[in-house]
Nucleic acid binder design. Structure first.
Length: 699
DNA sequence: CACCGCCCTG
DNA sequence: CAGGGCGGTG
């Protein structure tokens, strides 16, 4: 169960730190995240493809036009709701804070605190002490409690900052105050310093709690793992077990490192904080506000990217901290104030940044360092990890993974003579160049392109990119196809549905409000995780993947399916369900073919009687045709995958077969379609090896 | 009998 | 897309 533990861990942290980060963002600056950004610019044209696919009832639909509509509110996430209010987020950009504002601020703080506490109330009883409770329950509530505690800490600091501000009214209150001001301020500073220390301690304590909580889960699941581990061994090789061990080591190492590297990391973290120029923040913000593309449209719940994003946010805050404090403290012309500001910045910055750093490190270590995340087009949903990712990498970096395994597996699938021949041609084909037609290779590249683009980083100023690239734990640049990218999928959703809800609804960002992925998304399969990294059930991800596979194989055998869904724990039910899927896919396919064939026949008849088989517009399934659009919409809703040319050809074959059958009146025969089915059945192509990877296709 | 694919239906 | 019925196959 280490795999899950590891998968869970960062998410756990992520979820917990979300609040902190958001709040922290609010503390020093305004969160950058509340408005749509350019993060998904390259997909803007495809947005329409996602919009109609929404079917989630518990997720708000993303506004198709990009910018969140006023009605688009994440339900029930009080911690950040104010950040999502239209005017709520950029509360303090300029560092100007008049008395009214401050009062509002205080009120707001009270509200926030109240909400936080409310949130915590539900969870504190079971948070960290109810050992007899179910883990899931515990974790959920633990999260709430942690979030609440963290938030309270941050709120406390926030209040500290507010209180240490030069107060407009007070400044003019006269000499008496000014007289005692010096000592008063010192006392105040000391008091604040104490509070700061306290906050810091609490933060650390909380961090430890997180680790402990994780450790508990880790241990609890280990038992289960031992018992189930054997089942995983029927995999092709021992690589999986090796992977497990490796990951376990990493996890434990990190656990231990907690106390060792604290100081070191603090320094790093702070240097990180100081790089961001203040103006870049504004500039970015302006750009983000200009950009109409909704965050909800952007990622498939890239939690890692979400973390990155928050790190970025935090970095932004580093710049703003400076500006903000200068604006506020310099008025007073007080050097001590600056020093305090500096100290506060350092302390807070390091504390929080350390958490961020750790989370980041977790994530980046979770990904095999030798395999740049560029390959992650399908999410490995907490599965047997490295090996398959390695395959993805191979596909990307070598661009010819398909040949490698072809002979091995395709024969396990259903083969008729024709396909067998195809395969033999392929595997015996002399030249080592890609024997696949371009359309087999292209879609994969396309599929990857989004991860490669890595929108998250594109909006960061260069300095920050440099930082990220130079971070030892984010070191991808040495790899040929490397990009600082992360598993683009909603890991969160695989852990705890309730967390996923919060994350989706509460954050109003990061995910494509679903849709796209609801066509292949995050919710669904997460409920059925098993020890081996496989799922007992099929998720929307799998459905989506199956649909894409349909472009290649209309009639996959159950064996084929098994090899292409390594993260699915197949049993009779699951197998037949997936078979059923393909049956439904075929049905849809043939229905469309027949429909368009009949329409073509009608048109031919109404025109001038003579059948015009291959005239332009008729019986074609080019990419500009309505039929193509319908098919693409059905099997490739998010439109991130380029439909293989071969599929188009096959569709044309089917269309013409239907046409001719109808034209010649064969359709009066009750089983007139059988012959067509037979033809199409023989036209299955090998599914690209990329589909062997577990996880979810992007888009 | 088990399995598969098609068909129909909701 | 899933459920259930049906026929075909081994």
């Amino acid at each position: 169960m280490q795999l899950y533990a590891r998968t869970l861990q960062p998410i756990f942290l992520t979820t917990g730190s979300d609040c902190v980060l958001w709040e922290a963002g609010d503390l020093f600056c305004c969160p950058v995240m509340d408005s749509p950004t350019d993060l998904f610019e390259d997909s803007a044209p495809q947005i329409h493809a996602f919009a109609p696919s929404l079917s989630s009832t518990d997720l708000p639909a993303p506004p198709s036009a990009g910018r969140p509509s006023p009605a688009f509110r994440p339900p029930g996430f009080p911690l950040i709701h104010h950040l999502l209010q239209p005017g709520g987020a950029p509360r303090r950009i300029g560092g100007q804070l008049n008395t009214n504002l401050r009062q509002q601020e205080d009120r707001k703080l009270e509200e926030d605190r109240g909400e936080v506490e409310q949130g915590a109330d539900g969870g504190d009883d079971g948070a960290m002490n109810g050992e007899d409770r179910l883990m899931g329950f515990k974790k959920r509530h633990g999260d709430a409690a942690l979030a609440a505690e963290w938030s309270q800490d941050v709120l406390k600091v926030k209040r500290m900052k507010l209180e240490s501000r030069p107060k407009d009214g007070e400044a003019e209150e006269g000499g008496r105050r000014r007289e005692g001001g010096r000592e008063g301020r010192r006392r105040e500073r000391e008091e604040l310093k104490e509070q700061l220390d306290e906050a810091r301690e609490r933060l650390q304590a909380l961090q430890e709690k997180v680790w402990r909580a994780f450790g508990e889960k880790h241990m609890a699941e280990e038992e289960e793992e031992e018992e189930k581990k054997g089942r995983c061994r029927n995999r092709e090789d021992g690589g999986e077990d090796a992977g497990l061990m490796e990951e376990e080591d990493i996890t434990e190492g990190m656990y231990e490192e907690e106390d060792i590297d604290g100081g070191e990391m603090e320094k790093e973290a702070f240097s990180l904080l100081s790089v961001s120029p203040f103006d870049s923040f504004h500039k970015q913000r302006e750009e983000q506000q200009k950009d109409g593309v909704g965050r909800g449209e952007r990622g498939r719940g890239l939690h890692l990217e979400g973390v990155m994003e928050e790190a970025g946010l935090w970095l932004d805050c580093g710049g703003l901290v400076r500006g903000d404090w200068h604006g506020g403290v310099e008025d007073e012309g007080e050097e001590g104030g600056q020093k305090f500001a500096q100290a506060l910045k350092v302390e807070l910055g390091s504390a929080v940044a350390r958490v961020i750093d750790r989370v980041l490190r977790l994530y980046t270590e979770m990904t095999d360092p030798s395999s740049p995340p560029a390959a992650i087009s399908f999410l490995p949903p907490g599965n047997d990890g490295g090996r398959e990712r390695g395959v993805w990498m191979g596909l990307l970096t070598q661009g010819r993974g398909e040949e490698k395994m072809r002979g091995k597996e395709d024969k396990t699938g259903r083969q008729d003579g024709e396909r067998e021949k195809q395969l033999q041609k392929r595997s015996s084909g002399a030249p080592p160049h890609r024997s696949e037609p371009a359309d087999l290779a292209m879609p994969l590249a396309q599929l990857f392109s989004r991860s490669l683009h890595h929108p998250q980083l594109s909006h960061l100023p260069p300095s920050r990119k440099d930082y990220l690239n130079s971070d030892p734990f984010l070191e991808f640049s040495s790899h040929p196809s490397s990009h600082p990218s992360f598993p683009p999928l909603p890991l969160l959703g695989h852990l705890d549905p309730s967390l996923a809800r919060h994350a989706h609804g509460g954050r109003e960002r990061g995910m494509r409000g679903d849709g796209g992925m609801r066509g292949g998304g995050m919710d669904g399969g997460e409920l059925y995780l098993t020890a081996g990294g496989t799922q007992e059930g099929l998720s929307p991800c799998h459905l989506k993947k199956a649909k894409l596979m349909f472009f290649y194989a209309r009639y996959p055998s159950s064996n084929t399916l098994k090899t292409y869904f390594p993260d699915v724990k197949f049993n009779r039910c699951v197998t037949s369900q997936m078979i059923k899927w393909f049956s439904n896919f075929r049905e849809f396919f043939y229905i469309q073919m027949e429909r368009f064939a009949r329409q073509a026949v009608r048109e031919a008849l109404t025109r001038d009687g003579a059948p015009r088989l291959n005239r332009e517009g008729q019986l074609r399934v080019g990419r500009d045709t309505e039929l193509y659009r319908i098919l693409n919409m059905h099997y490739n809703k998010s439109n991130v995958y380029q439909v293989p040319e071969r599929f188009i050809e096959i569709s044309e074959v089917a269309l013409r077969e239907f046409y001719s059958a109808i034209w010649t009146g064969r359709d009066s025969d009750p089983c007139w379609k059988k012959g067509i089915y037979k033809i199409i059945c023989k036209m299955d192509s090998p599914v690209p090896d990329a589909f062997r990877l577990p996880g979810c296709p992007v888009g």
